[in-house]
């Protein structure tokens, strides 16, 4: 089962390597990983998607909590939450494909953020499924380069992850 973990981490050198090392060391899987400082600059927030049954997720959570620099861990998938991923995608756009790709981009509410004679760079935000669907809609031939941020997640309504 896919799970999305939100981790508050001391914003210190080496802290992230302990989190990643833990996953490697205990044979846990990291599907996507996303990290940046929060509004409190002493904290970083990691959103990490992984897979595993309930026991495994419980073990992952417990072992993360054992790391001294991990301040809080929440399994966002346990409750209502929002997920977004950012994708920058460079596509070949020549001839009549230019208009076709632009239309497709509009349908998915993407933005063209860079243009050359034969290529668009498109920015698209949404759930991972939406980004996958956009790539499929473009057809493989058009795609030159894809960069995805990994999933960021936040609890819905008044659920707040803070100190």
């Amino acid at each position: 089962m896919r799970r999305l973990l939100a981790i508050l981490l001391e914003n210190e050198a080496g802290a992230l390597s302990r989190v990643i090392g833990l996953f490697a060391q205990r044979n846990y899987n990291i599907e996507t990983l996303n990290v940046a400082p929060t509004e409190d600059e002493t904290l970083s927030r990691v959103t990490l998607s992984t897979t595993g049954d309930e026991n495994r997720i419980e073990q992952i959570t417990k072992h993360l909590n054992r790391l001294i620099e991990v301040v809080k861990v929440v399994d966002l998938t346990e409750g209502d939450h929002l997920e977004r991923e950012l994708m920058l995608i460079k596509v070949r756009a020549v001839g009549e494909m230019r208009e076709e790709i632009k239309r497709c981009c509009d349908i998915f509410r993407g933005q063209v953020i860079d243009v050359t004679n034969d290529a668009y760079t498109i920015q698209l935000t949404g759930t991972s499924e939406k980004l996958d669907a956009f790539i499929r809609a473009l057809g493989e031939a058009a795609v030159l380069e894809v960069v995805r941020s990994g999933v960021s997640g936040i609890g819905r309504a008044d659920k707040i992850l803070s100190l």
């Binding site: 050198a13 080496g14 390597s17 302990r18 090392g21 060391q25 001294i68």
Partner: peptide, 16 residues
């Protein structure tokens, strides 16, 4: 050393 010992320590420090 912090890297080498990471999987086998409870915690480690590098003095800056």
């Amino acid at each position: 050393m912090v890297g080498v010992s990471r999987p086998v320590v409870k915690h480690s420090y590098l003095v800056r």
